[in-house]
Design a protein around this nucleic acid. Structure first.
Length: 153
DNA sequence: GCCAACGTTGGC
DNA sequence: GCCAACGTTGGC
């Protein structure tokens, strides 16, 4: 079993979107970075996922998610109308990957980035490193526990 | 709005 | 294959 963290802006696949979906899952698509894609491809149904809000007033981890569907080809790469369309991808060997994620629970508190930066478990993590643009990343058990504590979960 | 970080692109 | 230019991410 592995732990992951996925980043988003609150208005685009944020906590409100998951709460609106209820027990239904949301498609986590549009990832167009090879390192992040490789992490997506490594996701499994048993894995645990943290939801992170970026570029907003309260930057940090807001909820726990689960993997509702194993990695599959991101449909948007084949959609010419989509900004995520990739003309150089093809059906036989799709370049980009999506998963479906569903809300497990919103945390009582936001585990703020400012706090995580002072948390030893996150020292050297690409989450807290300045300028990191990685939007899907693995989390170790210590980091998971630290988030649980800070989030009041 | 600014700007640092950094991935990607394209000329050579 | 190098590297400058460019675009995007994301904290502040």
């Amino acid at each position: 079993m592995a732990y992951w963290l996925v980043k988003t802006e609150p208005a685009d696949g944020g906590l409100l979107d998951f709460q609106a979906a209820g027990s239904a899952s949301l498609v986590w698509d549009g990832v167009r970075n090879y390192q992040a894609r490789n992490f997506l491809r490594a996701m499994d149904l048993k894995d645990e996922v943290l939801l992170y809000h970026a570029s907003c007033a309260e930057i940090g981890v807001v909820a726990q998610l689960k993997v509702a569907r194993k990695p599959y080809p991101d449909p948007l790469q084949f959609d010419p109308e989509s900004p995520y369309f990739d003309a150089s991808s093809n059906q036989c060997q799709p370049r980009w990957t999506a998963v479906d994620l569903a809300l497990v629970r919103a945390f009582p508190k936001v585990a703020l980035l400012t706090t995580l930066k002072r948390t030893p478990a996150f020292e050297g993590s690409s989450l807290t490193r300045k300028g990191s643009r990685l939007s899907v990343l693995p989390i170790n058990k210590d980091q998971w526990r630290a988030v649980m504590t800070l989030a009041g979960g």
